[in-house]
Amino acid sequence: MKQYDVIVIGDANVDLVVAGCSDMPGPGQEVFVRNITLHVGGGAALFSLSLARLGLRTAFNGVLGDDGFGQFVKERFNQSGIDTRFIRTSNRNNTGISIAINPEKDRSFISYMGSNAELDLQQLDMRSVVLGRHVHLTGYRGSRNHAEYMDMTRRIKALGLTVSIDVGWDDTGEWYKGVFELMEEVNVFFMNEVEAQHYTGCSSAEACLKTLSAHSRHTVLKLGAMGAAAAVDGRMLYRSGFEVPVVDTTGAGDAFNAGYMYGFLTGQPPEQCLLYANACGAMSVSQFGGSPEALNHAAMEQFIAEKAGRTTDHWQIAQ
């Protein structure tokens, strides 16, 4: 029996969430805001927290600075039952920091990559990977590390593990078409709608999904408040989202991924995976911080049950 359900490889940092910032200060000025809170950040880290809180045995593999913020992240991981023994401590960079401004609206970020820049798949200790039955990857950067991700994905699958990837936003604007080659190797591939539009050149979610499904047996498309869609073995599925008050959208996509992978790794059909994913994403945006501390399997099921009679959520085959 494997020691872990999931090995997560990717970024971890801290998020400073600034709420109620109506104006940015000019030179020599000071602006007072409604609140500033400290949370764990980074897509891979937030995914890990949500997945562990749902009950899957999770280990994290990344790089943190030798500082107070790095210790803060490790403490939060340990509290959620995430194994941190594979985390490397940097002696060159501090832990990354991201300042999220106005998280309840179209949030803006000021970020320092820090120790996350040192994550190198070529230096990864594969002895940690074989302890799990699934690996989740983040940090894909197009042509800059495409060869590394192709090699790592193939090595992981050769060991008998399944692989999922959230491709993430391309801050270079390259939108490297080699991503379609990577999709062919990955068991579950996540994108949001805007990313998919950039990669495919299509304008509608349906057209994007059709294009992506030609390269992947299992693609999940995040549609924000509209819900999500998936293409699995050529069959296209859709679930609308839950209507909830939005407090903080930071990390909602990562909580969504965790809900979906929880369903996938517990043997649920895609329609149930989408339901779990939408529920976790909705629970995430309902409070500050990317991974709600109240999230667990029972809370997720209760959320779904309470919303069942008061939501437009439905299940259909996309044509």
Score class of each variant (00 low, 15 high):
91 N>S: 14
65 G>W: 12
5 D>K: 10
162 T>E: 13
237 L>Q: 05
259 G>H: 06
248 D>H: 08
128 S>W: 15
172 T>K: 05
227 G>T: 14
148 E>P: 00
89 T>S: 12
275 L>H: 06
161 L>Y: 07
48 S>F: 02
112 Y>C: 04
151 D>V: 03
228 A>W: 10
52 A>E: 03
71 Q>L: 03
230 A>R: 04
127 R>V: 04
100 A>R: 01
269 P>Q: 15
65 G>F: 07
5 D>Q: 00
65 G>H: 04
180 F>Q: 01
189 F>V: 08
153 T>V: 10
31 V>G: 06
230 A>V: 02
201 G>R: 00
257 N>M: 11
27 P>C: 03
176 Y>H: 15
51 L>C: 07
50 S>Q: 09
50 S>E: 08
313 D>H: 13
208 C>T: 05
195 E>W: 10
125 D>C: 08
275 L>W: 05
184 E>F: 03
245 P>D: 05
51 L>E: 03
171 D>W: 02
224 G>F: 07
236 M>T: 12
232 V>R: 14
54 L>M: 08
262 Y>V: 06
147 A>I: 08
84 T>S: 11
239 R>K: 14
179 V>N: 13
242 F>W: 12
22 S>E: 14
77 F>P: 01
151 D>T: 03
41 G>F: 12
81 G>H: 11
148 E>L: 05
288 F>G: 08
5 D>G: 07
282 A>K: 06
258 A>K: 02
148 E>Q: 15
187 N>I: 10
223 L>G: 08
92 R>T: 11
318 A>P: 00
53 R>T: 00
237 L>I: 10
83 D>W: 05
316 Q>I: 13
149 Y>H: 12
203 S>T: 13
251 G>M: 11
270 P>Y: 00
95 T>G: 07
202 C>R: 15
167 V>I: 15
113 M>L: 15
36 I>Q: 10
102 N>V: 12
52 A>N: 04
116 N>G: 05
312 T>W: 06
31 V>P: 01
146 H>Y: 05
5 D>V: 06
308 A>H: 11
299 A>C: 00
77 F>D: 09
249 T>N: 07
242 F>N: 12
308 A>G: 09
71 Q>M: 10
98 S>L: 07
287 Q>D: 10
215 H>V: 00
109 F>R: 10
11 D>I: 06
42 G>N: 09
250 T>R: 07
197 Q>R: 12
174 E>Y: 04
314 H>P: 01
78 N>P: 01
56 L>G: 02
299 A>Y: 02
175 W>T: 11
35 N>S: 09
285 V>K: 05
181 E>M: 10
209 L>E: 15
210 K>I: 04
178 G>L: 03
70 G>S: 06
86 F>G: 01
282 A>V: 03
28 G>Y: 08
207 A>C: 06
179 V>M: 15
300 M>S: 01
10 G>D: 10
258 A>L: 01
2 K>E: 10
34 R>M: 02
265 L>G: 15
149 Y>L: 09
21 C>L: 13
160 G>W: 10
57 R>Q: 13
80 S>F: 09
115 S>Q: 12
66 D>W: 09
163 V>Q: 13
221 L>G: 05
282 A>E: 00
195 E>D: 13
122 Q>E: 15
119 L>F: 04
99 I>M: 15
131 L>P: 02
83 D>R: 07
205 A>K: 12
318 A>N: 02
86 F>L: 02
6 V>T: 14
244 V>K: 07
58 T>P: 11
215 H>F: 05
300 M>D: 08
